[in-house]
């Protein structure tokens, strides 16, 4: 009798409480090291908190935000660069990925080789790759200038200009992420029923028309997904601008801050000026800006026609 009782109690414990124990590690660790710091950022952003000041932290309410939004040209410069890089990375990334997925969707020999090939950039380390690209984009001996020279384009000082530095950084990001999105699109392309294309062919639709009228509309959910994912990543580029011009002043993103992103400005304020309050305010504004831009991306991609 006692044995049965104990077994029953054990069973009740097992069905009632054990599941919580299994999911608890995730919630505990994420809560402490993920969610709490994020929420606490809002709190810190309302404080004067600079590690270099000896007077400690005290509340100044919205002064950081006031300074940031109304009296800090560096911040608006960084936001401008962030938006410019967002455009230069996100749109080419999605369009190129659609094209590459279309190529991979043909019947290809050695298809695993090609699929692995497109995803290779995505698995390499962002630090290593940025250092490599910084050399390829070098002014005097860079390979890219050498190729351009063959076509008579002359030497470009990629880091010096705003537009040229943005193009160089965008190239690194697009190189890294296009293949990933291409595989997502490919997976869905392969599931499009062939009968749709057959019917279109009978109606006289050419390959190009079929691509825009059938393939792209049917991929709409994946295009929305990729746009949002790409936006959240591209709105906080940090490693690329930081390592494009490594050195003592790396966190300013170029001599005129021509490629300093908002995330890099956050890093500069937080970890070279040690102004934690101000840096937190940048984090909060950047998070809000990311939500707005991702929302815009959603609204645009949602309009893809589905007939």
């Amino acid at each position: 009798m006692a044995v049965v009782d104990r077994a029953a109690r054990k069973h009740r414990w097992d069905t009632k409480f054990a599941p919580y124990a299994y999911v608890a590690p995730y919630f505990l660790l994420f809560g402490v090291f993920g969610l709490f710091p994020l929420l606490y950022t809002v709190w810190v952003s309302l404080q004067h908190r600079n590690l270099l000041d000896s007077d400690g932290a005290y509340f100044i309410w919205f002064s950081n935000y006031h300074q940031l939004l109304f009296a800090d040209p560096y911040f608006w410069n960084a936001m401008g660069n962030t938006l410019s890089l967002w455009l230069l990375t996100t749109i080419p990334q999605i369009l190129l990925a659609l094209g590459i997925a279309q190529l991979l969707n043909r019947k290809v020999r050695t298809r695993t080789l090609f699929r692995m090939g497109v995803i290779l950039p995505n698995i390499t380390s962002v630090a290593a790759v940025t250092i490599i690209f910084a050399q390829l984009f070098g002014r005097d001996f860079g390979l890219i200038n050498w190729v351009l020279d063959l076509f008579g384009a002359g030497h470009i000082d990629w880091q010096a200009g705003t537009a040229t530095s943005h193009i160089a950084i965008a190239t690194m990001v697009v190189w890294r992420w296009t293949g990933y999105h291409a595989l997502i699109f490919l997976a869905s392309m392969q599931a499009i029923p062939a009968s749709l294309y057959e019917a279109a062919t009978l109606d006289g639709a050419k390959g190009w028309q079929q691509f825009w009228r059938i393939t792209v509309p049917l991929l709409r959910p994946q295009i929305i997904f990729s746009t949002i994912i790409a936006t959240t990543g591209n709105m906080r580029l940090l490693a690329e601008p930081l390592l494009f011009n490594p050195g003592a002043a790396a966190s300013t993103g170029g001599s005129d801050r021509q490629f300093q992103t908002a995330a890099l400005y956050l890093y500069e304020q937080g970890f070279t000026n040690w102004d934690f309050g101000y840096s937190s305010a940048i984090a909060v504004v950047l998070a809000i800006a990311t939500v707005i831009v991702a929302g815009l991306g959603y609204l645009v991609t949602k309009r893809i026609q589905t007939d």
Binding site: G34, P37, L38, Y40, A283, A287
Partner: peptide, 19 residues
């Protein structure tokens, strides 16, 4: 869990450093 996937925890870097 699904909701937290989209949260950019990187932006909590300052308090995480303080911790």
């Amino acid at each position: 869990v699904i909701g937290t996937q989209a949260i950019p925890t990187e932006l909590g870097v300052i308090p995480l450093y303080m911790m």
